[in-house]
Design a protein around this nucleic acid. Sequence first.
DNA 1: CAGGTAGCCTGTTAGC
DNA 2: TGCTAACAGGCTACCT
Length: 274
Amino acid sequence: MPELPEVETIVSSLSPGVVGRRIVEARVFLPKLVREPSVPEFCALLAGREVRALRRRGKYILFHLDGEYVLVIHLRMTGQLVLAPAGSPPGRHTRAVFHLEGGLELQYHDLRQFGTFHLLPCSSLASFAPLARLGPDALAPELTPALLERRLKGRRGGIKKVLLDQSFIAGVGNIYADEILWHAFIHPERAASSLTPGEVERLAAALREVLEEAVRERGTTLRDYVDGNGRPGGYQRLLRVHGREGEPCPRCAVPIARTRTAGRSSYFCPRCQH
DNA sequence: CAGGTAGCCTGTTAGC
DNA sequence: TGCTAACAGGCTACCT
């Protein structure tokens, strides 16, 4: 479900209600959600801890807790974190609930059950492989055209595949990869190593512009995504190619094409993306 | 060893 | 209208 703009919006919308509050009790209804430690340990370790900070790293959400623990959540396709008044009845897809001080609860919903929770001591965070493997954040200031160009050199395969590789840069998913490449006039199957300096420049600009505008629009809601207050995003209105097969390209009016590779769809303009 | 695919799940929608 | 198959925003493990 959520890519960088959605995760960023979830973190910023949850922060006012969550940061500085204590978790009174944690309940887990889908045991496999919690990858470590065991569910009883997980609940016991969370109870009584204050949330000191909420952060995003790529598509991961980090709850920094007092006592030097950190809860790492990945929402995968359909995970949602939503603040609700204490005692709200769980829905069909409510997989966990954290009761907070102050009459609030944080609910985790996940239709497809792909999401993951890891509760770690801060000291193990650096060696936590899924985070350690991530490349620079897609919105990190240090991700300059020069760095992008250096990292693209020697990369095999198509540019879209590379953009989706979280160890290359962290935060881009299928929707925004399509949009970014359209804005940069680059075909999704162009060999990543063949991009000219001018194209890399356009790619770096598109990456920043698309992701920043999507953050301002509070993310894209195609089906399930909502922010921490249960509200949908607005960037779906601004999608130029993703999900628009057969519709005219907004630049040149040629019908948008769709291809499938590795089980995922790519949407692009066959005329103005090279 | 790089590239492709199945698997994890459930729900919605497109197509017959 | 009703059934079936394809597809969905992510990531990993395994196969060729």
